[in-house]
Amino acid sequence: MVKCIKNSGYLKQNQCPLKGSNPFGTVLTKAFELIRAFIMQLVRSVAHSMTRDERSLCVPPSSTFAEHFQRGNLKTKAPLREFTGFFPPSGRSEGYAPSFFSLYTIPRALMAMSDTLLKKYQIAALPENVLRLGQLIQGAFATNAHEIAKIIKADPAISDRVMKIATRGRDIDMDIDSAVVRIGVDKITLVVMSELLLHAVKRTFATMLSIALEPTETINPYGDQMVGCIHFKGKATGRVFLRIPCKAANSFATRFLGKDLPAEPAELFPEIVGELLNIVGGNFKSNLVDAGLPCSLSVPKVETKTGFAVDLSGDEHHLSVPFTADAMGMFLDLIISPVTDSAAN
């Protein structure tokens, strides 16, 4: 960004236009230098708080880059956000008018565009972890463990899960920074994604089935289960499994359909699991898109199984999250391929 600022007309000349041509030149030059230093400091602090994607898009107002962006010639569809408040509006950058430069950035986690529409259609605000995932995937590959730790520390549930994975559940004294180094960015991405998924399952079960879901540590093995699977593919690629014991069939059908139950409600169980997974998958996919990982979603596939095993390819990561709902143990499984630096950009 500093490079962009240096390229702007104002900083190239780096001197006050009034110097030498005005009786108050010296005073004005001093004031000019002070203002310049102040703005540079401000810009540095703004740049420091931005993700790598945002930094790369800071441009001076007269730049053709901005024009290209506004015409939609760049890859991202996210609109530009102008940093105003700190700086006067652009458009007067010629000469030495008060507008020295403007900054344009992609909104954090690409959320600015949807914010207006979320309000217009009265849709619930995005979960905080969408922002964290956005920060993680857009910054993690070029940043250090301390910065990643700062992102995940903001959510106690994520910190807790990261610590459990890093210590393998043993009572070891370890701080988050060390845990980040130990488990690596792929697994951290998996943990943040699994929290988004769990959030979607909680909302779906609460709204569609009026069941409060409780995460748990372990679940005793049970018999037949209905296993739903949905795939997502794109900048994020992976699979989500939802495993519900078959003994939940009648209860789920009653809760899902209320008084309009068919004669054999249990026959609808595969459809119910499919629709629950469809909703969970759709919510999760939307979170990924809003975090900057566009992908497409498959239609859910549901089948009855007695056991459960997944084939993992070499670079895939798997996280299994047990939970209880309606006094029954269930599982949510997330499998992802690593989100690479090129995928994130």
Partner: peptide, 9 residues
């Protein structure tokens, strides 16, 4: 179930 900015837009 999809309510991301892209779909909404």
């Amino acid at each position: 179930a999809e309510s991301d900015g892209e779909r909404l837009g």
